[in-house]
Nucleic acid binder design. Sequence first.
DNA 1: AAAATTTGACCCAT
DNA 2: ATGGGTCAAATTTT
Length: 306
Amino acid sequence: MENGGAALSRERLIGELNQGIELTRVLETHLDYASPLEFQRLLVRSLLSTLARAVSIAMTSPQFPPLPTPASSPCPTDESHGGDVHGRGSKKRKTLEPQWTQWIRVSSAAGVEAPAEDGFSWRKYGQKEILAAKFPRAYYRCSHHKTRGCPARKQVQRSDTDELLFDVIYHGVHSCGAQGQVAASGAAAVPPAAEADGENSEPRLRNEALILNFRTGLAIKPEEVDGGDGELPSPLFPLVPGEPGGASSTLAIAGPSGSGQLRVDPDFPVLEMDLGDFFSAVLDPDFMGDAVESKQYLSSAPSFFC
DNA sequence: AAAATTTGACCCAT
DNA sequence: ATGGGTCAAATTTT
């Protein structure tokens, strides 16, 4: 039952992350020495793609929620490992459970209270006004929480800006053998957005208004798609830009340190991850193997992110 | 009556 | 002290 695959992607992930850190250090040095802007740009670009790859790996890693159907897998949810003795300001690894976000847009503006069904049955257990949000956030948990202790939960909140958009944040995976994932695979895992019967001749990736939101506020938002319509390269978040004639969609990426572009697969759902959770998951002691060094790396480097 | 939702209190991290 | 997540009693829905 070992998760060889998981371990592998974790290694790759850590590798990418470390490289990103290394690049950052080099860049820092060169900033100090006022090296050629050209070179600095190159570093930044490399850094960007390294991080993008890392994100991609993280997103597809078994440790994180799967895009397609939940494929009722055994409940991996492990609670405590009693083995965390090491005094030493014990870290608080709080988020072990997968969490991801879906943006769902509804069609009719008026009267819409919530996005359509997603194939599971939920029971609302709370609602809260959120500080800087126009709309309240609703909390749901799987209906089988009582009966079968299913840990799945979700939060639904209407977007401040786009009236037709809802953020649906899922926490944990279902352990109840509930709900046929409806062939509409999309139903539960991908924004239906459909409404097809229209004239949408637009390229698929339009203003889905998707935003990859890291703690820093780094955002990636849709931009023009370069007419290309060919197949998209398989690696998600492949290398960055500079390269004009690509058959894929491109996204403009803008962050605290500049901007660039990314190619993306329009079919890949956009997730939202908190970098803190991201790192704590990656650094979970249970997986540290001989990569322990990365721990120090990571904990000492990215002041950048917070 | 049973099941689900509403809503303010409560609790736990910042 | 604050903001956000959950609890649970009251209330509404079926």
